[in-house]
């Protein structure tokens, strides 16, 4: 360093020369990567808390009309991207405190079920959760926003180059998960039907390529092997197999497995002289043993 005339001698390894003046980065004690991370975080995650006034604005007597006016919708959409998921839940809470539906674009009073749980068509639900909304429709719409805040997709917003969470409102008659699933199951992918659209064409193309791949794997496009299946003619009733003398005869019958003799010619059954064999009787592993034996095929 040029600024200090006699720097104390370091016992550490030689450091690469440092620039004369410490940059702002070094002063904050952050590495470049950390700083970059912080920068992206500041654009996305680290948002200042939502002021209480905003909560009041979006909870008390909001929206001003039912159905909500266009200005109310755009007001909500301008505020929502700044909300963290938990702050959004707070907003629902705050609206519930005023006895209105948790969905920010609904001015109806919330439900007022009693008891701990309620049996609904979809199963058992806590009344506490049900009472946050005026209807199931609003619950869907409200949580639709929550999901988008929890798993944000960012878009570049405007002149300042800030990243903004993209929020979409749920349409009135939008299909739910179940309907979408059903629709997907109904789709046919075999490409056989004539009114094939673009998607069908794609599937067809994929199938063709898969076929090519299979040929390539099986070996250079070999022609198919002709296989003819014929019937075996039976002239006499079946008899139990007998051993020929080459296979050892009757005396070795107990050593035979399905017509083959274990440990025939040149190999002693106890395997002491097997060349290159490392298995001894202690670690007898059947599969290895069988593999290493001569099956005595004729």
């Amino acid at each position: 360093m040029a600024s200090t005339p006699n720097p104390p001698k370091s016992i550490l390894k030689k450091q690469p020369p440092t620039p004369d003046a410490p940059s702002a980065l070094e002063l904050t004690g952050l590495t470049r990567a950390q700083a970059a991370q912080l920068l992206t975080l500041s654009k996305t995650e680290l948002k200042p808390p939502i002021p209480i006034e905003t909560f009041e604005l979006l909870s008390a007597a909001f929206p001003s009309s039912q159905p909500p006016s266009q200005s109310d919708i755009s007001l909500l959409l301008s505020h929502l991207p700044n909300f963290s998921p938990s702050e959004y839940l707070d907003l629902i809470d705050e609206r519930n405190c005023l006895n209105t539906c948790g969905y920010a674009l609904c001015s109806k009073p919330r439900r007022n079920f009693t008891g701990k749980v309620k049996i609904r068509r979809s199963g058992v639900a806590k009344t506490e959760d049900l009472n946050k909304w005026c209807s199931d429709e609003c619950a869907l719409k409200g949580m639709y926003i929550h999901v988008q805040l929890e798993h944000p997709s960012y878009e570049w917003a405007g002149e300042k180059g800030e990243m903004k969470v993209k929020i979409r409102l749920r349409e009135d008659k939008e299909p739910g998960v179940k309907e979408v699933k059903k629709a997907v199951e109904g789709l046919s992918l075999d490409g056989a039907d004539d009114e094939r659209d673009k998607k069908g064409d794609e599937a067809h193309e994929k199938k063709k390529q898969a076929g090519k791949l299979a040929v390539e794997r099986n070996g250079m496009g070999v022609d198919k092997v002709e296989v003819t299946i014929g019937e075996k003619e039976i002239t006499q009733p079946p008899t139990a197999p007998t051993f020929t003398s080459a296979q050892g005869g009757e005396s070795d019958a107990h050593l035979m497995v399905e017509g083959y003799k274990i440990g025939s010619k040149g190999k002693k059954p106890n395997n002491t002289g097997g060349e290159g064999e490392d298995d001894d009787d202690d670690d007898f592993i059947p599969s290895i043993r069988i593999e290493s034996l001569n099956y005595g095929r004729p």
Binding site: F55, E56, C97
Partner: peptide
């Protein structure tokens, strides 16, 4: 008795 929000 139900909930206490900002206004209260």
């Amino acid at each position: 008795k139900t909930s206490i929000g900002i206004s209260v």
